[in-house]
């Protein structure tokens, strides 16, 4: 038997103790079959030489796949690109999101329309986002190129997506454009929790805006910003469509992240074993990030409690 129901819930709502399990069973079974089971299989495949041509005929080869990946200098580049892509997405995605949320938190005419408009990139399919940005970056007729030329910034005629220097920034521009609306909406919601009396009192006291932000606004929204940063990090580690469609991970691996590398190994080079091992390394990184985040937020919480 479980713990007794809280009194508020009352006897009328108590049913068979099996009811909750009956209710959750189909979903749990489904997630085991489609997510957890395959995940375990992925773990196994990463120790085999399974190929795409004969997925059932993999032989156990121990740690060979991992050894191959770790000693591969290309893979070191993959890790660096992944770190840069993730850091760029988090810094600019959250930064722009925070700025936009602070702007939208003011009263102005047409605010609700503005709020609705702000979120639409996030609703747009990534494939469409990649499509429009690839056209805007077009070397000859793309609006970015034309803009650069008219500002006299560059000799032009270079497609950012074909440049080992500019491909990653270009992919980041498209990515950030799509993701910052989400963080802005969530941060905006958190801003509603900032006690307005405290803020007004601080303004009457002639505290300057920056100070109000630091002492009143930021402490209220910090946990949300931290959580959104975690999500943005994890989502950047798993993002595939925008990168793959814009650059395919190129040129020369300049935008090749863990996920595009996984896809390339598994479904271009047809080496499912190596792809699986890359996947396991990706999962390890995502787990470490999540644990670090929980450790940090636990400590911040304890510090806040200690200060109170």
């Amino acid at each position: 038997m479980q713990r007794p129901m809280s009194k508020r819930r009352g006897a009328a709502l108590e049913g068979s103790p099996w009811t909750p399990y009956v209710f959750i069973f189909p979903l749990v079974a489904y997630l085991f079959a489609i997510l957890a089971g395959p995940l375990l299989q992925e773990f196994w495949i990463s120790f085999t030489d399974t190929s795409l041509m004969r997925p059932d005929a993999g032989q156990f080869i121990g740690l060979s796949n991992y050894r191959f990946i770790i000693s591969d200098p290309n893979f070191h580049q993959v890790l660096i690109v992944t770190a840069l892509y993730t850091a760029g997405s988090v810094v600019f995605g959250i930064g722009l999101g925070l700025g936009t949320a602070l702007l939208m938190n003011h009263d102005f005419r047409g605010r609700s329309v503005a709020r609705a408009l702000v979120t639409i990139p996030w609703a747009a399919p990534s494939v469409a986002v990649a499509l429009i940005f690839s056209w805007m970056f077009n070397a000859q007729y793309g609006i970015f190129t034309i803009l650069q030329k008219s500002l006299g910034l560059a000799s032009g005629a270079e497609n950012w997506l074909d440049s080992t220097t500019f491909a990653l920034p270009a992919v980041l521009i498209a990515t950030v454009w799509q993701i910052f609306p989400f963080s802005s909406v969530v941060i905006l919601a958190a801003l509603q929790g900032v006690p307005s009396e405290v803020k007004e009192a601080a303004i009457i006291d002639r505290a300057d805006r920056l100070n109000v932000f630091k002492t009143v606004t930021w402490p209220t929204i910090a946990p949300t910003v931290a959580l959104i940063s975690l999500f943005t990090t994890i989502w950047s580690l798993r993002r595939f469509d925008i990168i793959w469609i814009l650059t395919g991970g190129g040129p020369l691996g300049a935008t090749n992240t863990l996920v595009t590398e996984l896809y390339r190994e598994g479904f271009i080079y047809r080496d499912l074993g190596t792809a699986a091992a890359i996947g396991m390394i990706g999962l390890l990184i995502a787990s470490v990030v999540t644990l670090l985040y929980y450790g940090a937020s636990r400590r911040a919480e304890m510090r806040a409690r200690g200060a109170a």
Binding site: L35, T50, G279, A286, T290
Partner: peptide
């Protein structure tokens, strides 16, 4: 946790299944 999982991780085993 499902929201943390990269879809790409499941490509290989789901392809086999």
């Amino acid at each position: 946790v499902t929201q943390m999982l990269p879809e790409a991780m499941l490509l290989v085993p789901l392809y086999a299944v």
